[in-house]
Simulated scan of single mutants.
Amino acid sequence: MSNILYSIFPSENFIDLGLYQYGWEQCDPAHSFGPAARNHYLFHYVISGTGTLTAHNSKKESITYNIKSGQGFMIFPHQICTYIADNELPWEYTWLEFDGLKAKELIEASGFSVNSPVYRPRHKDLARQMMEEMVYIANHSQESPFHLIGHLYLFLDYLNKSNSSPLQSQGNRMRDFYIREAMAFIEQNFQNDISVEDIAAFCNLNRSYFGKIFHDTVGKSPQEFLISYRMSKAGELLKMTSLSIADVGNAVGYPNQLHFSRAFKNVYGVSPRAWRYEQQGNPEKDV
């Protein structure tokens, strides 16, 4: 039997939360990875054995953590880190790399930060259910993307319940309510001519205060989130329908096709037309 399982998630059509790669490994003694940085969130759960994680904190200082079976560690996007299996008792771990518009909010609600990346569960039974979800995903790469995303949500639910404290949850409750209200408003009105002022007014908040709590929670400004959400929806329409570029732009809140094409290219790096051809397996030079 191989000592590693590794899979790449086949779909990019999940906006709120999506997988990138996942797996399981029984590491060789002193097996290491890094120093390197990831583009997304990467969580490891240690099933057995021990090892070390060295990661940059918020001050760019390298901090080393000893991590053993029953614990885990979260690597943040663009955080430089190195992790090494013990020479005598190398770890066996399972991992998930994921991201999405709501990932930052969920990770912070679970008690993680670049200054606190180690998972030390408060509830062992929930931690075991979380591990089982991770191992299930690692062993079922042949299942549909929707099936695997469903288990990703279950993993995150167990991660949050097993690691977050009641006081932490209570302190974030009101802020999270406003963010959910704002996201619901965006999801229902992204195709209309809405502004950050409109979103803040819907939540009955001062624009400045709303912008701060939104950025602190989501990791993007409300305007950046709105544009990202619109462009994600535009990508779905370009890939899944035969609508014209103008009709796609109009459907996501850009009645001016030129403005839509510029916004799309700022996010994806190519024009909507070139992106559609690439997704259909026919790369087109973007002139």
Rank of each mutant, 00 (worst) to 15 (best):
A37W: 12
A37H: 15
H40C: 08
H44N: 13
S48E: 12
T50L: 08
G51T: 05
T52M: 12
T52R: 13
T54W: 03
A55G: 13
H56G: 07
S58G: 04
K60S: 05
S62D: 12
T64N: 10
Y65S: 00
G70H: 02
Q71V: 01
M74E: 04
M74H: 00
M74R: 00
I75D: 01
F76R: 00
F76W: 04
H78A: 07
H78M: 13
C81D: 03
D86E: 03
N87Q: 11
L89H: 14
W91G: 01
E92G: 06
K102R: 11
K102D: 06
K104L: 12
K104T: 15
E105K: 15
L106N: 06
L106W: 12
I107R: 04
S110G: 08
G111N: 07
G111E: 04
S113L: 05
V114C: 03
V114D: 04
N115K: 06
S116F: 06
V118A: 04
Y119H: 12
R120H: 10
R120A: 08
R122L: 09
A127R: 02
Q129N: 08
Q129Y: 11
E132Y: 15
E132T: 10
E133Y: 12
Y136M: 06
I137A: 02
I137V: 14
N139L: 08
E143Q: 11
E143G: 05
S144K: 15
F146Y: 11
I149Q: 15
I149P: 14
G150W: 08
L152M: 01
F155W: 14
L156F: 12
